[in-house]
Simulated scan of single mutants.
Amino acid sequence: MPTPFPVSLILLPGFSLFALGAVRSVFTAANEVNGEVLYKITQYAVEGPQVLAQCGIALTAVPLEQLNLQQNGFLMIIGDERVDESITGIVSKRLQSQFNQIYNDSGWIIGACGAGSQVLAECGFLEGYRAAIHWQILADAVKRYPSTIFTPSLFEIDRNRISAGAGAAVLDLLLHWLGLRHGSTFAAEVAAILGVDRLRSSDERQPVPASAQPALGSARLKEALELMAANLAEPLQAEDIAQLVGVSRRQLERLFRQHLDTFPSRYYLELRLKHARRQLKQTTQSILQVGLACGFTSGPHFSTTYRNFFGYTPREERARHTMPQIHTKNSEEDIQ
């Protein structure tokens, strides 16, 4: 029996559980179609033997420090919207040490979905390659990594580098990749097992929420949104934002009402609160630390504002998302 092709999945903190499920389901179905274990998955956690998904569910996995890549295989980094700089540094250091000799080997497939492409770019593994990345960080990635051709496409397959944008795009990516590797009939059988009746092509763009689209048509509004996103811990005043983007405060309010049907202050508050919610779900920072990092002056101020917006307190939010635990084996697992 041929040796199964190793699949190494690196789960970034706050990764998409949906994306992970899609990846594992594709390879499980591929094994079913093949009739024997064709692909063998091991999943790795960046920090310690456990990692928290974006939805608050914890999974156990092999610590990243134990990653020991062979001479060929499939590596994919699974993230969601954004990656903490410290996490990027940890993954980059480990991958660069592992791939120092072999990462350009034609036997290796190196991939990412969501914000995982940011990590690959930081490692230098995407220089001169086309790549997809989560639409929320596309603009920033284009600026930060000019040697990588980031696109708004659902996914990209460029030689031995593969990448997907947000959510379900990784399913389309892997089914197309299986078609290239094993033939279209094999990929169609895998798709049938998964109940997929239409594959989206790589030239389709990632769907972007209507609330985020107007910024593409208004340079000043786009600048204002970027300023807000970059200044969550120390929120800017509306007058300062207006001055920085070159409009009056009244003009800024008109732009927000016209394109987003809200006021700058309301949008900014919602942005900070949603970021706080992600931090409560994905990190172990204290509630006070989260509040201060999102621009609230005290614990009570943060708690009251959070409850008024979401209907429950930060403490209740954390309790709702840290109790569920799903544990998987922390050693290599054959998927049958």
Results as ranks from 00 to 15, higher is better:
Pro4Gln: 08
Val7His: 01
Leu12Val: 14
Ser16Trp: 00
Leu20Met: 09
Leu20Gly: 05
Ala22Gly: 11
Ala22Lys: 08
Thr28Lys: 08
Ala30Ser: 10
Glu32Arg: 11
Gly35Val: 11
Tyr39Ile: 10
Lys40Thr: 11
Ile41Lys: 02
Ala45Phe: 03
Glu47Leu: 10
Val51Met: 11
Leu52Met: 15
Val62Ser: 00
Val62Trp: 01
Pro63Asp: 03
Glu65Lys: 07
Asn68His: 11
Asn72Glu: 09
Phe74Lys: 05
Asp80Asn: 12
Glu81Lys: 12
Arg82Phe: 11
Val83Ala: 02
Ser86Cys: 12
Val91Gly: 01
Ser92Ala: 10
Ser92Arg: 12
Lys93Asp: 06
Arg94Asp: 04
Ile102Glu: 03
Asp105Thr: 06
Asp105Ile: 02
Ser106Phe: 04
Ile109Gln: 05
Val119Cys: 05
Leu120Lys: 01
Gly124Val: 02
Gly128Met: 05
Tyr129Ala: 04
Arg130Glu: 03
Leu138His: 13
Leu138Phe: 10
Asp140Val: 09
Val142Trp: 02
Arg144Gly: 05
Pro152Gly: 06
Phe155Ser: 03
Asn160Val: 05
Asn160Cys: 05
Gly165Leu: 01
His176Cys: 06
Trp177Leu: 13
Leu178Ala: 07
Gly183His: 12
Glu189Lys: 08
Glu189Cys: 10
Ala191His: 08
Ala192Gln: 08
Asp197Tyr: 11
Asp197Lys: 15
Ser202Val: 03
Asp203Val: 12
Arg205Tyr: 15
Gln206Arg: 09
Gln206Glu: 15
Pro209Ile: 06
Ala210Cys: 11
Ala212Glu: 13
Pro214Asn: 12
Ala215Cys: 06
Lys222Asp: 09
Glu223Gly: 13
Glu234Gln: 13
Pro235Gly: 07
Gln237Met: 14
Asp240Ala: 12
Gln243Asp: 14
Leu244Asp: 10
Arg250Phe: 15
Phe256Leu: 03
Leu269His: 01
Arg272Met: 07
Lys274Pro: 03
Gln279Ser: 11
Thr283Asp: 09
Gln285Ser: 14
Ile287Glu: 00
Gln289Thr: 12
Ala293Ser: 15
Gly295Ile: 03
Phe296Trp: 01
Ser298Thr: 13
Asn308Trp: 09
Asn308His: 14
Tyr312Leu: 15
Arg318Gly: 02
Arg320Phe: 11
Met323Glu: 14
Ile326Lys: 04
Thr328Pro: 00
Lys329Arg: 12
Ser331Ile: 13
Asp334Leu: 13
Gln336Phe: 15
Gln336Ile: 14
